[in-house]
Design a protein around this nucleic acid. Structure first.
Ligand code: FES
Ligand code: FES
Lengths: 147, 147
DNA sequence: GATTAACCCTACTAATTCAGTAGACTATAT
DNA sequence: ATATAGTCTACTGAATTAGTAGGGTTAATC
């Protein structure tokens, strides 16, 4: 149940970008340095984020990256899914349309219920938190409690 | 954010065991066959589950495995943690006591907040579902809703 | 119009983790 | 005694991950 480095770096980098982009495009180098991430590795990450249309790029000198939308409109869930594929604790749930469901072969699978709940909880939580929430304080600060 | 085969098989096998153990110890071979899991691989899994004191073993002929506690007292969270280590989306959160916190090195890390929430949500959900819930129907069937 | 700062993109590689096997040992019911 | 079933460690092959290398393209500026 661990995120890969790509997902972790991606979220960190997007936060960094959120904090700096107000002054125009931010070069990847800046972010890589601030976050202590290899420039070339981060480049790959940003390539995927751009293809997922979460960021825009500007080429040439004084170029760099910008958020594709307002930071309040970009959720952590989107970032994670762009970099790690669909949020799903087991394969059966990942390719939802495709009918590739091991659960059916083996016997009526009782564990699928818990994985569905888990997926919905994780997705719900991550989709409900935006970059703005993390960077500029949350609407409701009190969501952590009660565990 | 995917479970490993160990975790997935472990949960499936524990469910299988719950359903069969009423008639005395269940040999590993039975479960492996029913679930379509390699016997030797499942053996390793059960070794870890026994060490985590989630199951008991009986050796010799007519031996096998039994739940160490009542099925209502064993949560899915315990099974997953026994097999996959602490539930934590990022390393920083895994070794909580040990002070090995990358977050501090780099800069005040804003993403840690979301990972803490995520961990608490996942842990809360998985710790709140028991084998009995999955096998014999849940107390409150309506827990899925609202996402 | 040359230079240079930036992004674009694919392919490769080293390291690690994962999934599964092998095989030798121990306990116990019959 | 023998067969059945768990115990345990070490090994291996495959897959994934993390990171590198290096050759593009675009556009601002001098
Ligand atoms: S085999 Fe897919 S979750 Fe049961
Ligand atoms: S570096 Fe650990 S979550 Fe920020």
């Amino acid at each position: 149940m661990r995120l890969s480095a790509k997902g972790e770096y991606g979220v960190r980098a997007m936060i960094s970008l959120t904090l700096e982009e107000s002054g125009g495009p931010v070069p990847l180098r800046n972010i890589a340095e601030k976050e202590g991430i290899s420039e070339q590795f981060l480049e790959q990450i940003f390539l995927e984020l751009r293809r997922a249309e979460l960021i825009k790029s500007v080429r040439g000198p004084r170029g760099g990256y910008l958020l594709a939308r307002n930071s309040a409109e970009i959720s952590i869930g989107e970032i994670v899914e762009a970099l790690e594929g669909p949020i799903a604790p087991v394969d059966c749930l990942a390719q939802e349309g495709s009918g590739r469901n091991r659960c059916e072969h083996v016997r009526k699978c009782l564990s699928i219920d818990v994985w569905i709940k888990l997926r919905d909880a994780v997705k719900g939580l991550l989709d409900g938190i935006s970059l703005a929430d993390l960077c500029f304080g949350e609407k409701a600060e009190k969501t952590t409690a009660m565990v």
